[in-house]
Simulated assay, not measured.
Amino acid sequence: MSENESRVALITGAGRGIGRAIAERLAEDGLDIIVADVPDAQANIDDVVRAVEARGRRAVGVTGDVADPEDVARIITEGTGALGDLNVFIANAGIAQVDEILDVKPDDLDRIIDVNIKGVYYCYQAAARQFIAQGTGGKIIAAASIVAFRPFPVLASYSATKWAVRGLTQAAAMEFAKHKITVNAYAPGVVGTAMWDLIDERLTERDGKPRGSALQAQVDNILAGRVSEPSDVAKLVSYLSGPDSDHMTGQTVLIDGGINFS
């Protein structure tokens, strides 16, 4: 495949964790990568760009806040200006808040809604507009979560936003199908990332138990017998990004090692 024929994927929140794993996996699949994250993550962005290039693919780093629709549009413009037409948009960026409902402050609730709901909404809008302008169709993929199917305590705000992503994905699939755009989401379970370290910390503090015990309790409920790795999620996103999923749209797919069943 020549450089002019290569496929391009844009990944938000690509500087670390699941986003980085997705960028590296899609580079291995032969895609060029637009690595997007917040300005504070510039060092991480640069690392991921180098990791993609080390796999023989082109990469460009861009910064912005998905909660700002102008930033989202600019991220696409800058990324496609460097690498060419967009084929896959992965709305991976999101934040978690670990608080009981009674303790959630209005500003905190506003922020998680801005990033996890509005941010995904703006990404869906901007990606669809780009694909329509190109006349190419494309694939839109978002990060949901296991909590889009069954909420966790102290994650009510996060759970609500991920249920919203699941519903938005279904509605967007209905509206965008006429433009040859598919829309799907991936729903990770307990992944070995900083977010789950924070959840364990807050739950064990609340319950007066040793650090690590809350996470271990979750592991005990995983049929696969271990916490997920970011690479496990990236394998699913690889499928959703590729041609084998062309006949699939409107789905939110669990990748949790066997915790929930849908």
Rank of each mutant, 00 (worst) to 15 (best):
N116V: 05
R129A: 15
D108Q: 15
I132P: 02
D110T: 13
F149C: 04
L155M: 14
I146V: 14
I113H: 05
F149P: 00
D103L: 11
V115N: 02
T136W: 09
R150H: 12
A144M: 04
I101K: 02
A126F: 03
R129Q: 15
A144S: 15
A144K: 02
V154L: 14
A148M: 06
I146N: 11
V115A: 04
F149M: 06
A128E: 01
V154A: 12
V115Y: 05
T136H: 10
V104K: 01
N116A: 11
I117P: 02
I113M: 06
I117A: 11
L102R: 08
D103I: 08
Y124F: 15
I140A: 12
F131N: 01
I101P: 02
P153I: 01
A126D: 00
A128W: 05
A148C: 08
I132C: 05
Y124C: 04
G135W: 02
K105H: 12
V154W: 07
R129T: 13
K139N: 13
L102E: 11
P153Y: 00
F131L: 05
F152I: 03
I141C: 13
L155W: 07
L155N: 08
D108L: 11
P153C: 01
K105L: 13
V120R: 06
I113S: 03
N116F: 13
V147M: 09
I141V: 11
I101T: 14
F131P: 00
K105I: 06
V147W: 11
D107P: 04
I141S: 11
L102S: 10
L102T: 07
N116L: 09
K105A: 12
L109A: 11
Q130R: 14
Y124T: 00
Q134T: 08
A156G: 13
G137F: 12
R111I: 05
A142C: 12
I141Y: 11
V115I: 14
N116K: 09
A133R: 14
I101R: 00
K105Q: 14
Q125W: 04
F131H: 02
I140R: 07
Q130I: 05
G138P: 00
V120T: 10
C123P: 08
D110L: 10
Q125E: 05
Y121I: 03
D110P: 03
D114F: 05
N116S: 11
R129N: 15
L102V: 11
L102W: 11
Q130C: 14
K118Y: 15
I140E: 05
P153F: 03
I146K: 10
F152T: 06
A143H: 08
I140D: 07
G138I: 00
D103T: 09
D110N: 12
K139G: 10
I141K: 10
I112K: 10
I132F: 08
T136D: 07
V115K: 01
A148S: 15
F149W: 06
I101H: 07
R150Y: 09
R150I: 08
Y124G: 03
Q134G: 10
L109R: 04
V120W: 06
S145H: 06
V115P: 01
I101G: 03
K118F: 13
L109I: 04
Y124D: 07
R150C: 10
K105C: 03
G135V: 05
V154M: 15
T136R: 15
T136Y: 10
D103C: 08
A127H: 06
T136E: 07
D107E: 15
I101Y: 09
S145M: 05
K118N: 14
T136K: 15
Y122N: 13
A143E: 02
Y121G: 02
K105P: 01
V120P: 03
F152M: 14
L102I: 09
S145D: 01
